[in-house]
C-alpha cells in the first residue's frame, strides 16, 4: 500500500510537473482552470479516485499529433482504469483553449505593437514627433 508521505511527495512533484507540457499534470491543471473544477470533480469526470490523479499527473502527456496517440491514451486509461474517451476529451479541450488563446493574443499584439511604435516616435522626437501620446495633452500644468 502506498504510504501517505509518498502521496505528499508525489503531489509536490505533480505541482512542479504542471509547469511542463511534457507531463499530464499540465493538462490536468489547465482543464481544471478552464472548467473551474475542484480536484474531486475532475476525478469524478475521469471516473477515478483522486489519488489516481496524482499518478496520472506524472505520466507523459501523449502527443495528439503522434501516430501513437491512440495507443498511448489507451495504455494510460487501462493502467489507471480511467474512461479513455474522457481523457481524450480533456486533452482536446485543453489544446483547443490553448490554440484560441494564442489566436486572441496574436490579435491583441498588433495594436500593442503600433502603440509601442507610436510611443517610441514620441520619445525619440522629444515630444515633437508627428505621433503624440494623447495623454500628454491632458496633463495638468505642474
Amino acid at each position: 500500500m502506498e504510504s501517505k508521505s509518498n502521496s505528499f511527495l508525489l503531489q509536490h512533484a505533480a505541482r512542479r510537473a504542471a509547469q511542463d507540457r511534457f507531463f499530464f499534470s499540465n493538462s490536468l491543471v489547465e482543464f481544471r482552470n478552464v472548467r473551474g473544477m475542484a480536484e474531486d470533480q475532475l476525478a469524478e469526470f475521469l471516473g477515478c479516485r483522486p489519488i489516481v490523479l496524482l499518478k496520472l499527473a506524472l505520466c507523459r502527456r501523449p502527443d495528439p499529433e503522434s501516430p501513437n496517440f491512440r495507443s498511448d491514451m489507451e495504455r494510460i486509461a487501462s493502467v489507471f482504469k480511467i474512461r479513455p474517451e474522457r481523457l481524450v476529451q480533456l486533452i482536446r479541450e485543453v489544446d483547443t483553449m490553448k490554440a484560441l488563446t494564442k489566436i486572441s493574443q496574436a490579435k491583441q499584439r498588433v495594436p500593442e505593437g503600433l502603440l509601442a511604435a507610436a510611443r517610441d516616435v514620441d520619445e525619440d522626437d522629444s515630444g515633437h514627433g508627428d505621433i503624440v501620446n494623447p495623454s500628454e495633452n491632458e496633463k495638468e500644468p505642474e
Partner: peptide, 15 residues
C-alpha cells in the same frame, strides 16, 4: 516513451 513509465518511476523512487 512509455507514457506511464514516468509516473511509475516517480512512485517507486521519489521517496
Amino acid at each position: 516513451q512509455d507514457p506511464v513509465a514516468p509516473s511509475e518511476f516517480a512512485e517507486t523512487f521519489l521517496n
